[in-house]
Amino acid sequence: MAEVTGIKDYIRPENLVYSKTRLMTDNVLHYCPGCGHSTAHRILAEIIDEEGLQQDAIGISPVGCSVFLYNYIDIDWQEAAHGRAPALATAIKRLCPDKFVFTYQGDGDLAAIGTSETIHSCNRGENFLIIFINNGIYGMTGGQMAPTTIPGMKSSTSPYGRDTVRMGFPLKITDIVATLPGTYYVSRQSVHTALNVRRAKRALKKAVQYQSLNRGTCFVEIVSNCPAGWKMTPVEANKWLEENMLPYYPLGDLKVPQPEKDLNPGSTD
């Protein structure tokens, strides 16, 4: 491993405060520089490791940039057809009720082609976790307009900016699923700053822990960037995300467990 190091004297095992989790494989992430997917993968792997769920986890990767998620986290995986991850997860969880089942889906997968599967599995209160990466664009196919592309935002199929009269409005699907009785915990987070990564990890960890209660679907949206698709440097993209995406997709919990439903309140913070 080629490395550069800071002051060597301090580099001792007892001083270690952060290193890549062992659940992340050694495969080099295929994502573009600065992509939020990578960060989201990493916190997810950390949580699975910290919660001791490696043996129980069955993940479902989507179609889109994160299709190869199964190359990066060392657990069992199924790769779904575009938009269908919640259908797979429904069957997996019902047939293997003791497992921790989750889907990881992008905005095109979850909020366009897979809207039906998303809403119906949340509405049935299926006991799995949905992780929703919203970067407002189709990354893998080369930057086309997504269901979550914000008004005025440019993409290769909205080259003059999303015109809501002709192209419709962005779909706030997280707000929709929060209204469904089947969802237990719904939160929107981001991973564009260190503070937000820490908050996102806290929310995601809560969702993972709630999942074991089998009280319904947990849903965590992560507002993310797409430097290549947005045609910005990663640093510019994160700034743009903060100034443009977050006003449209404000961060925070959209639905928290009702007190009488919460077996273990406050234990996860």
């Binding site: 779904a80 259908a87 997996i92 119906h120």
Partner: peptide, 23 residues
């Protein structure tokens, strides 16, 4: 497990998920 899915598309993908678990 018997489940009425929201569509045939969901039903066959539930089959995929279950079959992937060797069921």
């Amino acid at each position: 497990v018997v489940l009425q899915a929201e569509s045939e598309i969901a039903a066959i993908n539930m089959v995929y998920g279950g079959a992937g678990c060797g069921k």
